[in-house]
Design a protein around this nucleic acid. Structure first.
Lengths: 125, 125
DNA sequence: AGTTAATATTAATACATGATCATATGTCGA
DNA sequence: TCGACATATGATCATGTATTAATATTAACT
């Protein structure tokens, strides 16, 4: 039993089936930080409320109150989610007196959003 | 005070700022089911382990044990996540004797995965 | 300065969910 | 049919997180 197999067994408890594939794919594997970063990005789209907010902002720049009204959400809940989205730089904000306007930060987000909805339509068929 | 403003206050407790925008965006708003469906789809990409699995499968069809070895995950954890991915029809499986091979179900998933990593690269600049 | 409006923040709560252990299921070979 | 291997499943536990109510902050107006 060679070292590689032993190492597999640490996590897998099973004899490796395809060492060549594992080796090849492992070499291309993103770092933990990269996977973490990407999964965190997708997490922003994974909640109903946040996705609704992202969707509305993809249609128009809006203030907090408008988002509340559109999505029938409480102001506090909207603010909380907006702050997460802003922290991840998915949205921008600008203040005009008492009112704060939010908008999508980049077109990338809009594209991914669109793909999500396209996928849904296709799945529904 | 008209009816609309009162209705806003139910959820928003604030006087509406832009009735026209709210009305327009509301008309285009996806249904709750649609938003639910799309957010659930993105949720599959929102966890480190699942994203790792999706990534490896985007490189090659693999059996459960190979995935464990590549990602240094326990077999049980991998199986649990694979079953979620399969339930959402993101992956397919085929059995060959004792070994079960998993693969990505559609190219849509691969495209979205790629966009996520592209976004990360751009953000890192 | 005091009041009101719009938004942000804090703390508490309830709920979802990923990992793990133990065990079950399925498949093959002796 | 028995044992070994590969995978799946159930139950439990710990962690994360969305929501809410209450309160703070910020800004405009009188």
């Amino acid at each position: 039993m060679n070292e590689k197999v032993e190492q597999y067994q640490e996590t897998c408890q099973v004899k490796t089936i395809h060492e060549d594939i594992v080796t090849k794919v492992s070499q291309e594997l993103p770092t933990i930080d990269e996977i973490q970063s990407v999964s965190s990005f997708f997490k922003l789209f994974s909640d109903q409320s946040r996705l609704g907010i992202i969707w509305t902002l993809s249609k128009s720049e809006m203030c907090v109150c408008d988002i509340c009204a559109t999505l029938k959400m409480k102001q506090s809940a909207v603010s909380h989610q907006l702050s997460k989205l802003k922290l991840s730089r998915v949205v921008n904000s600008r203040r005009e007196g008492k009112v704060v306007y939010y908008s999508l930060n980049d077109t990338h987000v809009k594209t991914i959003l669109t793909m999500g909805f396209e996928h849904m339509v296709e799945e529904a068929r």
